[in-house]
């Protein structure tokens, strides 16, 4: 019997280690759809705003926090956590892609100090050329605005690297398995 590692598994392992080694994520969690509500609950600091998740069998039901979808400006400003899905994870960069949809991912992933991003294990690709191949397909399918986000927002303009500028200070990555 061979112990072949599937490309997906290899990419997922690389993705996790890149996030950890390069200090890009404040935490990395791996959860199945069944484990999702509990695992997500652990990562939330209220108030929480979110955009809907596109993963089948996964929702914010049973999550142990009040979650506001389509927030108002006031709610967005007050939020301490924003939850969005990622379209892709790029293993060797620790990058996630965030689609700009009417669900408001662009704001939810940007304004609160903590961004929790949920990426499906099957959407993790090994490298940037593969990611751009997928992005070209997504563009053709109508997802024509996407952010490649890698780590928290940061600046060196004030004389030292400071995390958390106009975007989040912490990125928490949740990898969704077994769908």
């Amino acid at each position: 019997m061979s112990l072949e590692v599937s490309p997906d598994a290899e990419s997922m392992a690389t993705f996790e280690s890149t996030l950890e080694e390069r200090d890009l994520a404040a935490s990395v969690t791996v959860a199945s759809a069944a484990e999702f509500p509990d695992a997500l609950s652990e990562l939330l600091v209220s108030p929480v705003v979110a955009a809907d998740l596109p993963f089948e069998g996964v929702s914010y039901d049973n999550v142990d926090s009040e979650i506001t979808l389509s927030p108002s400006p006031a709610e967005l400003d007050a939020a301490r956590t924003g939850i969005t899905a990622a379209g892709l994870g790029v293993a060797d960069y620790g990058t996630v892609t965030i689609r700009s949809t009417p669900g408001g991912e662009e704001f939810v992933s940007l304004y609160p100090e903590r961004h929790v991003v949920v990426v499906a294990a099957s959407d993790i690709v090994p490298d940037m050329p593969t990611a751009f191949g997928r992005l070209a397909e997504e563009f053709a399918a109508g997802y024509t605005s996407q952010i490649l986000a890698t780590g928290p927002s940061a600046t060196g303009d004030m004389g030292g690297i400071v995390k958390g500028v106009h975007g989040p200070q912490e990125a928490h990555v949740m990898i969704l398995e077994d769908r």
Partner: peptide, 9 residues
């Protein structure tokens, strides 16, 4: 390696 954000808008 890559900046925090590359926005494709």
């Amino acid at each position: 390696d890559i900046t925090s954000y590359v926005s494709l808008l």
